[in-house]
Every structure is written in structure tokens, then in C-alpha cells.
Design a protein around this nucleic acid. Structure first.
Length: 335
DNA sequence: AAAAACTACAACCGCCTTCCT
DNA sequence: AAGGAAGGCGGTTGTAGTTTT
């Protein structure tokens, strides 16, 4: 942390007229009062009009990460932890999108939490789970995966639904377990990159190039770890389950819905995206008011997930997915 | 008790996208 | 269409506080 400058004289670099470093209580008061009285406008105007020697960016950050009244304080709950792990397995390091689904939490907070706590925990888990006899794990990754799931379940990271009717008869469930576990076990691999085990990036077209933003839609053939060598798309068929996943911003068809919802929400507090889950998508639209198409995915309630035999571009609906965790029978977020 | 090591997290930086002129 | 300004985001840094040695 940087030292706050109580005098207000220092921390103003000679090359910039703006103050840097920790915010003093006086600055916080100024910004808070201004925001509560005037609301958000152009951030550089906010800084100027509030009488702050800060750049607009700094004010924005301070407001979003610290002063906003709807922020939750305190430690993450176990449920939030589970949610973060789960969302990270789906979204990678897209902290803002993860934060948008955790009311009252900021991307910075989640990012810090991940880097300081979860990442370490998973790393420890991974090393403790790595048995001395590792020869089998490379040839039978599925075993490794299930072992890891068990270990994480024991440590309370999440619980597995052990109902055999759900876990053993469903190749999809098995595949999803493996997918999520893989990303959990190695947080450095954003989603999947299991070239040699039949899994590959769900998003990218390259073997290891994870770029969900630029990558075109691809067909992810959900298979079981330890399957063939053909990767996650193309010719490799594992269990005949094809899931076409669009890049997250391929949602032009959703924007109309988002706009409609925005209209309804015009009178709501634009800064408050702390809301009940069932209205989270409304708020997400507001937060995404700057045409953040990615977040608008969350606004689509007309899309379907796992409903059709083949999902089309634009039907990937993460919010729907998150809303109904029963889509993931192997994960129990309500323990 | 003091020093070293570690942890948590606020804030900055730089890049990218979007908006406006 | 081009260019600049502003906003948004993820990565990284720096340090106060805590724990360990």
C-alpha cells in the first residue's frame, strides 16, 4: 500500500498535476460527497468539480473499488469462494465479468483474492495431490482428475454430487467435471489446454492460444479426459456431444433484449449493481451501459443452454448457466 | 525484542476499446 | 476517416500489517 499523504503537498509528481498514492480521508469525503450529490459524469470533471487533485481514472478506481456504497466488506464467504473458482474456470482471468456476477464485490478485490489466496490454495492442493507415483497420472489423467476432485471436496472447495445416476451415467457431467477440475488444478491454464489428452481450448482455435475475445466460434466436442488425440474440435469425437461456443461478444442478437431491459431500469441507481440474483442481469446491463457486449450476454434470458442438440452462436448464456447450478449436477453450491 | 519473511490489498500502469469531434 | 480523450480492464507493484524465526 502506498503511504497516504496527509499534507496533500507531496505525491504530486513534477511531471503531472495529479496527486498519486493512497487516498486521504479528506479526499474520500470530497469524492463521496460529490458522487452522492451529483452522480457519475465524466470522471475528469468529477475530479475537477470535487476539488480533487486526482486524475479521473484515479477517482473512478477509488469510487468503484472502495467508496461505492453498495460494496460488501469483509472476507469472502465460502459460497463466494466457490462461485469465484467456478466462474474462473469458465471465464479465466476476466475479473470484471466475474465481479459482475458477485454482487458487492469488485474485480480488483476478486483478482487480489484469487492471486493471494485461491491460487495458492490450488497450487498446494495440486502439489499435495501429486502422488509420488506420477507415471499413471499422465497416462490416465481421468484418475488424476477424480483424485483432485476428491481432494478438493475434502478441503471444502466444492462438493461433488455423488449420486451415481448423475455422476456416472452422464458423460457430459464427467466431461464437465474434468474440464472444471483441469482449470482449477492449474489456474495458469485459463480453461483447457489438454492437447495430449483429447481436450483443447474451448475458445481458441490454436492449440494453446486462449483468446476468447478474438477467437471465432468453435465447436467444442466435450469428451472424457484420457480420450483420443484429436483435440477439442475438428475431427475428434468423444462422446458425440457437440457444443458450439461463440466468443463472448458474439451477442448482437442479445442486445435488443439488453436494451429493452435497460429501458426498464433507467430509473434505478446506475451505480448499484448489488442486487438479488434474480435481477442481477438487469444491473449487469446497466454496468455494461458503455456497450460492453460481453456483459450483455448476461442479459439474455431467451437463450438456451444444453436445451438443444446443437447450440448456435449467440445462444451461449452463461448467466442462465450460473443461475441454475443444476446444470452442473456435480457441483453443489448450496451445501 | 528484533529482524525477516509473508500476506493482503490499494493503487498505479499500460493497453485496448469506445466515443466524440 | 482520423485522431484525441475518456473509460474499462488485467497485470503488476509497493507497502502496512501480521506471522515466524
Amino acid at each position: 500500500m502506498r503511504k497516504p499523504d496527509a499534507s496533500g503537498k507531496n505525491n504530486v509528481s513534477s511531471s503531472s498535476k495529479f496527486r498519486k498514492g493512497l487516498w486521504s480521508p479528506e479526499e474520500d469525503d470530497k469524492l463521496m460527497n460529490y458522487m452522492l450529490n451529483n452522480g457519475q459524469g465524466c470522471w475528469s470533471d468529477v475530479a475537477r468539480n470535487a476539488g480533487l487533485q486526482r486524475c479521473g481514472k484515479s477517482c473512478r478506481l477509488r469510487w468503484i473499488n472502495y467508496l461505492r456504497p453498495d460494496l460488501k466488506r469483509g472476507a469472502f464467504s465460502p459460497q463466494e469462494e466457490e462461485m469465484i473458482i467456478h466462474l474462473h474456470s469458465l471465464l479465466g482471468n476476466r475479473w470484471s465479468q466475474i465481479a459482475a456476477r458477485l454482487p458487492g464485490r469488485t474485480d480488483n478485490e476478486i483478482k487480489n483474492f484469487w492471486n493471494s489466496t485461491i491460487k495458492k490454495r490450488l497450487k498446494n492442493l495440486k502439489s499435495s495431490n501429486a502422488s509420488p507415483n506420477t507415471s499413471d497420472s499422465s497416462s490416465e489423467p481421468g484418475k488424476d482428475v477424480m483424485g483432485g476432485l476428491m481432494a478438493m471436496q475434502e478441503q471444502g472447495i466444492f462438493s461433488m454430487n455423488t449420486d451415481p445416476s448423475l455422476s456416472s451415467s452422464s458423460s457430459l457431467a464427467t466431461s464437465m467435471k474434468a474440464m472444471i477440475l483441469n482449470s482449477m488444478m492449474d489456474p495458469l491454464l485459463p480453461i483447457l489446454d489438454y492437447d495430449h489428452h483429447g481436450l483443447n481450448s474451448m475458445y481458441g482455435t490454436g492449440a494453446s492460444g486462449y483468446d476468447p475475445i478474438s477467437a471465432p466460434p468453435c465447436v467444442a466436442q466435450v469428451g472424457v479426459l484420457g480420450g483420443g488425440d484429436h483435440g477439442f474440435y475438428g475431427e475428434g469425437i468423444f462422446e458425440g456431444i457437440n457444443v458450439e461456443i461463440p466468443p463472448l461478444e458474439s451477442v448482437s442478437c442479445m442486445e435488443e433484449n439488453a436494451r429493452t431491459q435497460n429501458t426498464q431500469d433507467d430509473n434505478t441507481d446506475k451505480y448499484s449493481y448489488c442486487s438479488p440474483v434474480n435481477s442481477l442481469y438487469h444491473k449487469t446491463c446497466n454496468i455494461a451501459s458503455n456497450n460492453n457486449k460481453t456483459d450483455n450476454i448476461a442479459a439474455d434470458h431467451t437463450g438456451s443452454f444444453w436445451q438443444g442438440e446443437e447450440l448456435k452462436v449467440g445462444e451461449w448464456d452463461l448467466e442462465e448457466l450460473m443461475k441454475d447450478v443444476s446444470a452442473f449436477p456435480f457441483l453443489d453450491f448450496h451445501q
